[in-house]
């Protein structure tokens, strides 16, 4: 691997060596589809080779996942993970809470983010040096697909970042990928509209807000002492903060100003995470007074559905970036 390669011209990278792409997102958020679509688009050029794969372990919907893509004008032999991608993609800003999506990106690299924020805001917030491309994919998804899913837009933004594609082939290739998944025709048309809208909504700029030490590749520090047979302790080991699985931009709220809670306990027994907060109550048996929203709530909405008094609701919630960055 050349060490002082210019990584800013992605097309040149494809022709001269290989363009390595890494994406971070959440399972069920469409990252894999976006990468597969990119691979299909690339393969329309008979001279281009691709290697596309996701890493998801046993992650379920909402958990962080990663996708990788290599694109080259020559056959691709490398089998190792992508650790210094020239193009880094962030599908879901929620995913960036637990991983550094810019990790190992060489100076002058390209960043594509699905976000409402401007390229400049993103560069400053995430300490990015290089070309920053943004698209408000969730909003476009909500408008055209009736669902805040940004993969259609993200795909378009990445094609923009790589450059050299006509809008028709960008649209056709994506729709072909969907057809293979047996998506009904009406939904294909909505996707077409979303693709076209996305092409108009890409923004970009080049910034120098990050220092090389901002996104170091964490060195491997060994396996440490592992328990025999992976036998593991149980008590008090709740370290997997699953609130990150919830969709970005919304949050659960419990409000009961008039103490309408009847103590029916349905929210407690139907909460998959067991995080409804309540106290014994002389009159009702028990009284619900809240939910542990910030640590474990995946915002599945079951409490909203089962509460006879409608005390739970989903409300807009904007992550303030200061909070996100707090350790």
């Amino acid at each position: 691997m050349e060490t002082h390669q210019d990584v800013s011209d992605l097309r040149a990278l494809i022709e001269a060596s290989v363009l390595e792409v890494r994406g971070d997102g959440k399972a069920g958020g469409g990252l894999v589809l976006a990468f597969q679509s990119l691979a299909n688009l690339m393969l329309r050029d008979p001279e281009t080779h691709v290697q596309e794969w996701p890493f998801f372990s046993s992650a379920r919907r909402g958990a962080n996942i990663r996708s990788f893509l290599r694109i080259s004008g020559r056959p691709i032999q490398a089998a190792c993970e992508v650790t210094s991608p020239a193009l880094s993609v962030l599908m879901d800003e929620g995913a960036a809470r637990s991983v550094d999506f810019a990790e190992g990106v060489p100076p002058g690299g390209t960043f594509v983010l699905n976000t409402r924020h401007s390229p400049e805001e993103c560069a400053r917030h995430y300490h990015l040096s290089g070309r920053v491309v943004t698209i408000p994919g969730d909003d476009i998804g909500t408008k055209h697909l009736k669902h805040p899913i940004g993969n259609v837009s993200l795909y378009v933004a990445v094609t923009h970042a790589i450059g050299g594609f006509g809008i028709e082939e960008i649209v056709d290739s994506f729709l072909e990928t969907l057809k293979k998944r047996r998506i009904p025709a009406a939904i294909l048309e909505r996707n077409r509209a979303a693709l076209l809208a996305s092409a108009e909504a890409v923004r970009e700029g080049t910034y120098h807000e990050g220092a090389p030490e901002d996104h170091p590749v964490a060195p491997w520090t060994g396996y440490g002492t592992l328990p025999v047979g992976a036998q593991t302790p149980l008590r008090l080991s709740q370290s997997n903060r699953t609130a990150g699985y919830a969709p970005s931009g919304v949050r659960l709220r419990f409000e009961d100003p008039t103490t309408a809670c009847t103590g029916c306990a349905h929210c407690i027994t139907n909460c998959p995470e067991g995080i409804i907060r309540f106290a014994p109550d002389a009159e009702r048996g028990l009284l619900v007074h809240g939910v542990d929203v910030s640590t474990f709530c995946k915002l599945c909405g079951e409490c909203i559905a089962v509460c006879p008094e409608h005390l739970f609701q989903e409300v807009p919630f904007e992550d303030r970036w200061e909070e996100v960055l707090a350790p």
Binding site: Q238, T242, Y245
Partner: peptide, 12 residues
């Protein structure tokens, strides 16, 4: 069964 599983949101 404690919170923190990686099951899908709303898993029965």
């Amino acid at each position: 069964f404690r919170p923190g599983s990686t099951l899908c949101p709303g898993c029965m």
